[in-house]
C-alpha cells in the first residue's frame, strides 16, 4: 500500500515516520524507533507483552496500526524513569523480585502505570484487573501484585 506519514509523540519526543498503513505500532516502535523494550509475544492481543500506553491508556501495540497513532502520545518502558532514577514501579519490581525471565515485565509495568496514574491507592482486585491482559509464566503473579501495591502506597498484603 502507499505509505502514509504519521506524526506522534513517543516518550515525550516528537517522531515522524512513513509507514505502510497496515504496519503495527509494535513494529514501528521496535524496528524503526529501536524501542525494543516493547516485546512481541502472541501477536493477537492475548499476552500483553507488547503493552504500551496510548494517551495514558494501556493498549496492545500489536493490534494498532501505526497510522492510528497520529497525534497521540505513546509511552514505552524506555520512557519511564531515567538512567539515574528508576520509576518507583520499576524499583518496586526489583525490590519485590517481581521479575524472573523479564519478558512480560515492560508490559506488566506499563499496565500497572496506567492504573496508578488514575488510582493512587488501588485494592488488590484493582491491580489484578489492571494486569488482566498481561500473562506471566514465571512468577505466579504474587510478587507482581505486591510490587504494584508497594509502589502505590507502601502497604503490601502478605
Amino acid at each position: 500500500m502507499a505509505k502514509v506519514k504519521v506524526e506522534f509523540k513517543v516518550n515525550n519526543r516528537e517522531v515522524q515516520v512513513e509507514v505502510d498503513p497496515t504496519e503495527r505500532l509494535l513494529d514501528t516502535l521496535r524496528e524503526r524507533l529501536n524501542l525494543t523494550g516493547v516485546k512481541e509475544g502472541c501477536a493477537v492481543g492475548e499476552c500483553g507483552a507488547c503493552t504500551v500506553l496510548f494517551d495514558g491508556e494501556a493498549i496492545n501495540s500489536c493490534l494498532i496500526p501505526t497510522v492510528q497513532a497520529e497525534g497521540k502520545e505513546v509511552l514505552t518502558i524506555e520512557g519511564l524513569g531515567t538512567e539515574d532514577e528508576l520509576d518507583p514501579l520499576q524499583q518496586s519490581f526489583i525490590d519485590y523480585q517481581a521479575v524472573q525471565c523479564g519478558f512480560c515485565t515492560p508490559g506488566m509495568i506499563l499496565s500497572a502505570k496506567a492504573l496508578l496514574n488514575k488510582n493512587s491507592s488501588p485494592t488488590r482486585e484493582d491491580i489484578k484487573g489492571a494486569i488482566d491482559g498481561n500473562l506471566c509464566r514465571c512468577t505466579g503473579y504474587e510478587q507482581i501484585i505486591q510490587a504494584v501495591q508497594n509502589a502505590a502506597d507502601g502497604e503490601v498484603e502478605a
Binding site: G45, E46, G48, T51, F54, E57, A58, I59, N60, L63, I64, S111, A114, G129, A130, I131, D132, G133, N134
Partner: peptide
C-alpha cells in the same frame, strides 16, 4: 470482553 488493553481499544 478480552482484557483491559483490549477493552480500551
Amino acid at each position: 470482553i478480552g482484557s483491559t488493553p483490549i477493552r480500551n481499544r
